[in-house]
Amino acid sequence: MTARLLRLYPGVPEDIALSGAYLAHRLHEKGSAGVPFVYASFVASLDGRIALRDPPTGESRLPAGLVSGNDFRLFLELQAQADCLVTHGGYLRDLAAGRLDDVLQIGTQAATEDLAQWRVDNGLSPQPAVVIASASLDFPMPDSPARHGQRVIVATGAGAPAERVAHWRRAGYEVLLAGAGASVDGGALVRELGSRGLRSIYLLTGPRMLDTMLRDRVLSRLYLTTAHRLLGGESFHTMLSGPELGNAGRLRLCALHYDVGAPDDAGQFFAHFEPLPALS
């Protein structure tokens, strides 16, 4: 049976197919030369957890039931519309350790070949570029981007270790400096990527990158899946950590869908938001 969603907002409630629901947003057409469209996505529980942390090891994990097949399909549809995927050194370390799957390519499995064809039909490159944001520049480089012909850019701050910058440049990678400190700043990163002709940027990152993108007012859209379950746990991650955002955290709901086919019959919401203009 084809998965279905109930669109609750905007307009009159309507039953729609899940497949293609996010492709219809055509995010790759929303950016312009020098002004990329930047979007992020998160999955959270009703009590705001995006992951749990095991105190003895410090390792993070996704609890069973937080991510579903329906959510993953929409995640892949967001990927399919990107000129580049922004990831981080922590993901590459987890990937090398076998704790996470490689999600840096699109349409490489039989079940997702339609997304590869969608990119071809819509004038996008076969695979998006990969941008690795890191303050330490201490991470293992996966071989999958090279195997799939993906452009790889390493992004860091001006205060990053000089020997690590030199290391990646000697290895043949483009290293861009986007921020005055060691870490990447959202506004500087978006300007650098926009100057390189990248128009749709999908953030596969965590709370810190979301924070800097919001503070610098360069985030265009936030996609949020809310699983209808409470996770609890004393050690966990949320979408943001750090100082209060203030007015930079004001968002407008653009659409809300209800997924009745989520795990355990609990259901989940698919929503997306856009930041509101700065208050004068």
Rank of each mutant, 00 (worst) to 15 (best):
A3C: 02
I16Y: 04
A24D: 10
H25K: 12
H28Q: 14
E29A: 06
F37R: 15
F42I: 07
P56Y: 05
S60M: 09
S60Y: 09
F75D: 03
Q79K: 15
Q79Y: 03
Q81N: 13
L95P: 10
A96Q: 08
R99S: 05
L100P: 00
L104H: 08
A111Q: 15
A111P: 10
D114S: 10
L115N: 07
A129V: 08
A129T: 07
P140D: 08
P142K: 04
V154K: 08
A155F: 15
A158Y: 03
V165I: 15
H167G: 04
W168Q: 10
W168L: 09
L177R: 15
G181I: 02
A182F: 05
A182W: 01
D185Y: 04
L189I: 13
V190K: 08
G197T: 03
G197Y: 09
L198D: 04
I201R: 02
L203N: 09
T205D: 14
T205L: 11
G206P: 06
P207H: 09
M213E: 09
L214R: 05
R217Y: 07
L224P: 04
T225H: 14
T226Q: 13
H228T: 00
L230F: 15
M239W: 05
S241L: 10
G242A: 06
N247C: 03
L253Y: 03
A255H: 12
P263F: 06
G267P: 10
L276N: 00
S280V: 10
S280F: 11
